[in-house]
């Protein structure tokens, strides 16, 4: 199973956009004792299909089993471990930050600028910011805020795509 040092895998799954399909994927993980660290899913340009990105930390033998078991699900069209090769990964974060005093408002704005984020909602007592990046960048942003109070964090979970002309499609 997942050892503390096990590498993080990014599994990309093309799935029939059918009721129950997602629960089969999630159920498979709990049934077989695999972890899901993050999961995101939405329909693709072809509404009959969903694309799901799932991260899990595990060794080679386990990821091989996960991939095979996922492929066995009738609703799964394709599975790819995109972390095996060159790929792009991004995560979106909405973060609500306490910003009352002029100093903290400037500081938050500065951090957002450095991390190439946006302030998308402004209120007298807080800012809501949008950041996009890989997981470590988002972690780094939160760390950079230092003592400034974070009120709420919403992260999308990782989305990824392989860097290759070959597309994962039907």
């Amino acid at each position: 199973m997942a050892t503390p040092t096990a590498p993080v895998r990014i599994l990309s799954v093309l799935l029939e956009n059918e009721p129950g399909a997602l629960s089969r994927v999630v159920g498979l993980f709990s049934q077989r004792g695999y972890n899901i660290d993050s999961l995101n899913v939405a329909p693709t340009e072809d509404r009959s299909l969903s694309r799901l990105t799932l991260t899990t930390a595990c060794d080679d033998a386990v990821v091989e089993q996960i991939t095979k078991q996922l492929n066995k699900l009738v609703d799964v069209v394709k599975v790819q471990d995109i972390s095996e090769g060159p790929h792009i990964e991004r995560e979106l974060m909405l973060i609500k930050i306490r910003a009352r005093s002029p100093e903290s408002r400037t500081e938050v704005a500065r951090c957002v600028q450095i991390f190439r984020g946006q302030i998308i909602d402004v209120a007298p007592s807080y800012y809501t910011c949008l950041l996009v990046g890989d997981g470590t960048k988002l972690d780094a942003f939160i760390a950079a805020l230092g003592d400034i109070r974070v009120l709420e964090v919403v992260r999308s979970g990782l989305s990824g795509i392989a860097r290759s002309e070959k597309a994962m499609s039907l």
Binding site: A61, E64, Q65, K68, Q69, N71, K72
Partner: peptide, 8 residues
Amino acid sequence: IDPASISK
């Protein structure tokens, strides 16, 4: 017939 049975 089942790849998931192999090397499980």
